[in-house]
């Protein structure tokens, strides 16, 4: 064999080798193709099975459960909101009760103090203290009716030195009119209040024992921290003062008068018993 023949033989062998590899590869591809077809059929069956299940009663039940739970969730959210609103109401109510409690405490202290003594001067001091400390005013006066002259005059006052010696006739001006009518007087808007005279009060309440009026409490201005406003408890306190202060002042006045009479009688008795000796 010459060299050319041996080259051809070697090339033919190499070609055969490549051809066999190609054949093997094609066989493998065919096998893989077959396997993939089988998998596709399997998946198709699974999809069909899943489709069948999704249309079944189990899914319907689950859907029902979900919608039921959704409704429950909405109801719970609404209930939560309602409870939250209720809590807010309770908190507001608690503050109101707390305020009411504080106001009652103030009223209790004021009435307790007013009836703690029968001394006329002490009673007046207590009324002054209540007006300053519980209502918050530094310009006011307590006026009593002089039954002989039918005039009102100041028996206690604070911060009104320029008018404290003035006398007012029943029916004259706001103060005199309060005594005449027996009605409380409250200036409507303290923000724009301009007194028409030095005897123009912002508040004037009659000191009343049932329908019997013995005098008035006249307030001419409020302390700075009151911000030109009377609170609900101020009105309650003032109304309470009208009754309790009147009783306390009247009783203490009667008591001092009776004490004076008693000491006069005692003086006479002593004098007579000394004469008889």
């Amino acid at each position: 064999m010459d060299k050319n023949e041996s080259d051809i033989t070697r090339k033919a062998e190499e070609f055969l080798k490549v051809f066999r590899k190609g054949e093997e590869f094609t066989q493998e591809l065919l096998k893989e193709n077959e396997r993939l077809r089988y998998r596709t059929v399997q998946f198709e069956d699974q999809v069909k099975a899943l489709q069948r299940r999704s249309e079944g009663p189990e899914i319907e039940n689950l859907k029902d459960t979900i919608s039921h739970l959704e409704e429950e969730k909405t109801a719970l959210i609404n209930r939560y909101k309602a409870v939250e609103d209720e809590n807010k109401d309770f908190a507001a109510r608690y503050l109101e009760v707390e305020d009411e409690n504080n106001n009652l405490a103030n009223l209790y202290v004021a009435s307790y103090q007013l009836h703690s003594t029968l001394d006329f001067t002490e009673v007046l001091t207590i009324v002054v203290e209540i007006i300053i400390n519980l209502i918050g005013t530094d310009e006011f006066g307590i006026m009593l009716i002089d039954e002989m002259t039918n005039e009102l005059s100041f028996v206690a006052s604070e911060g009104i030195d320029s008018i404290k010696n003035k006398k007012i006739k029943i029916g004259d001006g706001i103060i005199g009119n309060v005594v005449k009518t027996g009605e409380n007087y409250f200036e409507e808007d303290l923000e724009i209040f301009h007194p028409a005279s030095d005897l123009h009060p912002i508040v004037c309440i009659p000191l009343k024992i049932k329908d019997y009026i013995i005098g008035v409490i006249a307030i001419f201005s409020l302390m700075e921290q009151k911000n030109k406003k009377l609170t609900k408890v101020d009105y309650e306190l003032l109304s309470m003062l009208a009754g309790h202060a009147a009783t306390a002042i009247f009783s203490s006045k009667l008591y001092s008068q009776s004490e004076r009479k008693l000491s006069t009688i005692q003086g006479f008795i002593d004098l007579l018993s000394n004469k008889n000796k």
Binding site: E98, N102, N106, I132, N133, I135, M223
Partner: peptide
């Protein structure tokens, strides 16, 4: 104090008061 004046408050705080309340005192 009865007065709501700033001067009294300052005096009190300067002297070492820890707090200051004006009359009429609010319970709360």
């Amino acid at each position: 104090t009865t007065e709501g004046a700033e001067a009294d408050r300052e005096k009190g705080i300067k002297l070492g008061a820890n707090a200051y309340l004006s009359k009429p005192i609010q319970t709360t």
